[in-house]
Design a protein around this nucleic acid. Structure first.
Lengths: 196, 196
DNA sequence: ACAAAGAGGAAGTAAACACTTACAATACCT
DNA sequence: AGGTATTGTAAGTGTTTACTTCCTCTTTGT
């Protein structure tokens, strides 16, 4: 038996590079030639790892979620803070949100939602984000029924919307870093509701 | 002098058709061949009205704002309602939001923001929406300083974010119509603040 | 050492695309 | 009526793009 198969390792190695390219250029302009160049290989090597460009994009979407979840998980285990995990995440996102181009790749995907596989990948991504936030809202509030605003699921959606619009404002140069911070923190606190 | 120039009239005639095509297909997939077909003419006719495809897209973005503003203006002049104009707009948007594919075309644009002219058009569009909402928030609240939440400008951004995420949820099949309605109405009321 | 299969490089291909050109037909004004 | 500029049709063009092919080189297990 000659040479073992290292393709899954290489997929993991290329995923962040593909993600950066898609985030910076969007789906259509991230041509396969550019993708290969960013990975430092020839195109056919990417085609040995993924069936087509769409599969590379979906791998990038999945990578985006995993990278974000890893960053958040680190925040959750921080002990000894006066703030609740939800508050810590808001605080973190208010300054670092969008740093990794997460929303650019989501926007790119949202322009391709008539492709069912891309739509499914996006649905997975957004669904996971919303559920993650929802869990934090519930933990923050403690019991059910305490908050005066929308239920935890809807509050989570609104908070995701906050992050989305904050990034649009940044992307278009309509919101400064300081304003984005206030937006996420103040509106976020309001939607989060009273702490248990 | 032969035949008068009717090009500005034709631009107005084609704008909604182009808008629909861009909203349905995104920027890249709305090929010039498709655009011409949707308008019922040959491609070169479009090229006599706009310098290039990008100009057609920018015209669509402008059309989107004008159409939305016209719909909202109709709500503002409605007299005799117990609700404030801001509440009427939330109520309207909670059921009709995204009907005209506004957000799809915005998503398409957000994937093309490295083109400075498209970025400028989007900035115009989002800036106008945010200012419009901000004015309604201010009118709703009456005086300054009354609300406990974020200031009117930030509240307006948060409300725009609510609309955005509501449409993402719809696009991906993650939020039913009823849930979207509750999201916009409940979170919207919260962000709007106390009425003057 | 050596077969077997993975890794890599470079050129090629067919289709799709934005945009153009050439020309015939039509409708306006004097 | 007739000259003129606009409107419409249809074919073309050069480029870009996703994806492939063919080949050589390297690395593994025996």
């Amino acid at each position: 038996m000659p040479r073992p198969d290292t393709s899954s390792q290489r997929r993991r190695e290329f995923a962040p590079l593909l993600t950066r390219a898609f985030a910076e250029l969007g789906y259509r302009r991230a041509t396969t030639a550019v993708l290969a160049e960013r990975c430092g290989v020839q195109e056919n090597i990417l085609y040995r790892l993924w069936s087509d460009k769409r599969a590379m994009f979906i791998a990038s979407l999945d990578h985006v979620y995993q990278a974000s979840e890893a960053a958040w998980a680190a925040l959750l285990v921080q002990e000894g803070s006066a703030a609740s995990p939800a508050e810590r995440i808001l605080e973190y996102e208010s300054t670092h949100h969008g740093e990794h181009g997460l929303y650019r790749i989501v926007f790119a995907g949202l322009s391709e939602t008539d492709d069912p596989e891309i739509a499914a990948a996006l649905k997975r991504l957004y669904g996971r984000f919303q559920r993650f936030v929802q869990r934090q809202v519930e933990r923050h509030r403690g019991g059910p029924g305490a908050a005066t605003g929308p239920d935890a699921a809807l509050a989570a959606w609104a908070i995701v919307g906050l992050g989305t619009v904050s990034n649009i404002g940044r992307e278009l140069g309509l919101l400064s870093a300081a304003r984005r911070r206030r937006l996420v923190l103040e509106a976020g606190a309001m939607l989060l509701g009273q702490r248990a």
